[in-house]
């Protein structure tokens, strides 16, 4: 297994400046797969050379079952750094014992969850910053160092 990322490394990767993306193209390019999920993805190289992937998922049976994921792919096995989820399921922070009910929530990778053999992004907090998939993508772009929409875009 790759060595766990420290919280400082995670924070640096999230904050690393990234080129702007065309959110509309990413959303309109979502293709349904064999499992009734619409999905789209984009490879992104940060301005310090780190490699990332941006994944967008939405369940065709439930529009509130969605996810926008920023994964770090430069260290071998991809690690989800941020995941913006919809409100279709509850979440429990296994280490802290706190819970998030059926509301949008943001998963953030942390060193402590990797150390306890949970998924790196096992910690999540509820948010009212978005209510739908487009809003979640908008928030990801603003929170994860992507150039703003008026800058030159990748797709």
């Amino acid at each position: 297994m790759p060595a766990p990322l420290s919280d400082a490394q995670i924070a640096r990767l999230i904050a690393e400046p990234k080129p702007g993306i065309d959110e509309r193209a990413l959303l309109s390019g979502m293709n349904p797969d064999a499992n009734q999920h619409k999905r789209s993805s984009l490879q992104v190289r940060g301005k310090h050379g780190s490699e990332f992937a941006l994944y967008v998922r939405q369940n065709a049976l439930d529009a509130f079952d969605f996810s926008v994921i920023l994964a770090y792919t430069g260290g071998g096995r991809p690690i989800n750094l941020l995941r913006y989820n919809g409100p279709n399921h509850p979440h429990v922070n296994k280490i802290e014992g706190t819970r998030v009910d059926f509301v949008p929530h943001i998963h953030v990778a942390s060193h402590r969850y990797q150390e306890h053999a949970y998924d790196p992004e096992g910690f999540a907090e509820e948010t009212d910053a978005y209510t739908d998939l487009g809003g979640a993508l908008r928030c990801m772009v603003m929170d994860a160092g992507f150039d703003p929409p008026d800058a030159p875009t990748m797709i």
């Binding site: 079952d65 989820n85 279709n88 399921h89 509850p90 979440h91 429990v92 922070n93 296994k94 998963h107 949970y118 998924d119 992004e121 096992g122 910690f123 999540a124």
Partner: peptide, 8 residues
């Protein structure tokens, strides 16, 4: 799930 999300 192993990330703490509940089953649907």
């Amino acid at each position: 799930f192993p990330d703490g999300d509940g089953f649907v």
